[in-house]
């Protein structure tokens, strides 16, 4: 049975609605009628698919984000955000759980890579001038996504509950308290107390595993949708309709 036969089955057609076919209408419906794909445009400029235009940095950033979601959910199955259990769980993941060390390292390296790729993506967009009209607001959303990426890294840093984590968050939260007037209050709310302790661990866990990923998903969706709305990927200063 070929894939084409599979696409013509009743089950496939009930799942993907439109059905297959080589007409342009069918092709555009395949994009429009899919809740995930409809964020993207039905047509893309051939030039926009070339490596040199984007170096695929946005897609690669999103790829690392997906790896982080999958490995993160798997790590959550063995992790208790409590003192001192968190440290023991992290050590168990390294030395006891099957493939635990692989998933933990994959999560860690993907996190580093994502920060790198997001910065590279930003520089690429900046130096090509792709942020200019009509894409100014998508640049702003990109900056929000950069901040979310950094906050995800920062909140994830505390979770192993080792010395590195503890002092990094102590230092980071003290930097936060340098905000004029509200600094101490922000730090107090962020940590849920006056020092990095059980409340801080739980708050960072909730931020890292629920609030920030949800916010990232939301803004990524808007970011992708705006690419379509702003006329597709920026392909150069002579944006002709080739």
């Amino acid at each position: 049975m070929t894939i084409q036969d599979l696409r013509d089955t009743r089950v496939w057609r009930s799942v993907f609605r439109g059905g297959s076919g080589a007409t342009n209408l069918r092709r555009s419906m395949a994009i429009q009628q899919n809740v995930f794909l409809h964020l993207a445009s039905v047509k893309a400029r051939k030039r926009a698919l070339e490596f040199s235009v984007t170096w695929y940095l946005g897609t690669l950033s999103f790829g690392t984000f997906l790896i982080l979601v999958v490995t993160g959910i798997l790590l959550m199955l063995y992790y208790h955000p409590s003192v001192p259990q968190a440290y023991a769980d992290m050590k168990d993941l390294q030395f006891v759980v099957s493939a635990g060390v692989f998933l933990r390292n994959l999560h860690r390296w993907s996190a580093h890579t994502m920060v790198l790729l997001v910065f590279a993506h930003m520089f690429k967009v900046f130096y090509r001038g792709a942020y200019r009209k009509p894409r100014e607001f998508n640049w702003v959303i990109g900056v929000i996504l950069l901040i979310l990426t950094l906050l995800l890294s920062y909140t994830g840093y505390l979770l192993p509950w080792d010395q590195l984590a503890f002092w990094a968050i102590t230092v980071g939260s003290n930097i936060m308290s340098a905000v004029p007037v509200l600094g101490q209050k922000i730090r107090f709310l962020m940590l849920g107390g006056h020092s990095v302790n059980a409340n801080a661990l739980l708050r960072f866990y909730v931020l890292h595993c629920v609030i920030l990923p949800l916010a990232a998903f939301l803004f990524i969706a808007v970011h992708f949708w705006r690419i379509r709305k702003d006329g597709g990927l920026y392909t150069g200063h002579k944006e002709s309709h080739e």
Binding site: I3, L77, V97
Partner: peptide
Amino acid sequence: IKLGVGSAAVACAGAAVFGYSYLSPNV
């Protein structure tokens, strides 16, 4: 197509074995 489907099947089988061994606690 056969190569693609075949390697996807191998990857799925590997992921299933990997997932099962990760999900069953050793201690």
